[in-house]
Design a protein around this nucleic acid. Structure first.
Lengths: 192, 192
DNA sequence: CGCGACGTTGATTTGCCTCAACGATTGTGG
DNA sequence: CCACAATCGTTGAGGCAAATCAACGTCGCG
């Protein structure tokens, strides 16, 4: 419940009233595994802060292939950022990979909070800066490394996911087919 | 000179005094083509707002291959965001592709301005949000499309660059070798 | 003028994909 | 609580996009 407040406190200091106001503008929701929270062509009117469980965002390309954009573990925000900031129809799907509880903040309430608690601009600026850095690094990794090296990096970055989600999700994240991923893994095992 | 102020005015409203304060904390610099503004293992202590010319950032991987991260045309900011926010040694190179003039904002002065003009948090938050969206889309494009489709997208996004920078820079941006890019282009011409 | 950066073209290789078939596991309705 | 379907992972054969390596032409600039 106050996982969000702890997270915020790492970056800015809120008064008790501000914390109360903030929480009063959010809502807790529980989703069963495989529930779709947002689909392509929806307008993303809310962003989600994961309290427990795992949520992912992904696209489906013109050939019907899924590409995993983001894993959101507890303590992370997730949304279709393009659609959320522009309020245009987006291209992402957002889906619970496990039974999950999330804290929901609507775009409307976020704008309201920005005006009432300007410090929050700082909090979100910092989060988004970090996302941008991580995303840029992932792009560089995709251009620089083989699938094997990208898998190594994945294991370091998301150790808790390796044995807790279907392999095909990992394959989709590092950008290979499930078949190739399977062969790659068995090759790694053979070479001990 | 007030290109920056115009850019800021698109997102927030500053008073004349605030504008003056802001500009007093920046500095204009001119760089000759091929000048390196930042190199790997440097700490990025300033970010650059391009007034004219073209600036790029890139990495060099373990095989010595360059990967283009960002083109900065006039009206765009560029920095090694990772190093800039963490003040750790970074991995990016930043280089002027043409003779360029840039406006320089030091990390120190940026923090100072955040305190004196909190509205600037909003301005930079919005810019970074947009960067994140663009970067995420580029990652999706890399995973979803062939080099040919990525080149088409590049031509739409950066029409002014196509005939004004070496082809190898474009190849590096879309993530192929100069040789393959050359063959791809001549194939496109052959098929009219 | 001459050198270095750039672009082109060809031959060959390779990392990864596609398609297909087949176990293993899971979960769900009867 | 079992049966059966769906989902997932594995393995193999063959194919393709893009890389690699090498040679060569061109041009702009010092």
């Amino acid at each position: 419940m106050s996982l969000l407040l702890e997270n915020i406190a790492k970056h800015i200091t809120l008064t008790a009233e501000e914390e109360e106001l903030l929480l009063s503008k959010t809502e807790i929701r529980a989703y069963k595994a495989k529930t779709v929270l947002l689909k392509e062509n929806d307008i993303c009117k809310e962003s989600f802060f994961v309290l427990n469980g795992i949520v992912r965002s992904y696209t489906i390309d013109e050939n019907g292939v899924e590409h995993l954009v983001t894993f959101a573990c507890p303590n992370w925000w997730i949304a279709d950022m393009y659609s959320y900031i522009s309020q245009q129809r987006g291209h992402l799907f957002i889906e619970a990979l496990e039974d999950s509880e999330v804290l929901v903040l609507s775009k409307e309430n976020q704008e309201l909070l920005y005006h009432r608690i300007p410090k929050l601009e700082r909090y979100f600026r910092i989060l988004i800066e970090n996302s941008l850095v991580a995303n840029q690094q992932r792009l560089i990794d995709n251009m620089s490394f083989t699938a094997e090296a990208r898998y190594d990096k994945f294991c370091v970055k998301y150790p808790e996911l390796i044995h807790n989600i279907p392999q095909k999700q990992i394959a989709s994240y590092i950008g290979v087919t499930p078949e190739f991923f399977s062969k790659m893994k068995s090759k790694l095992l053979r070479n001990q």
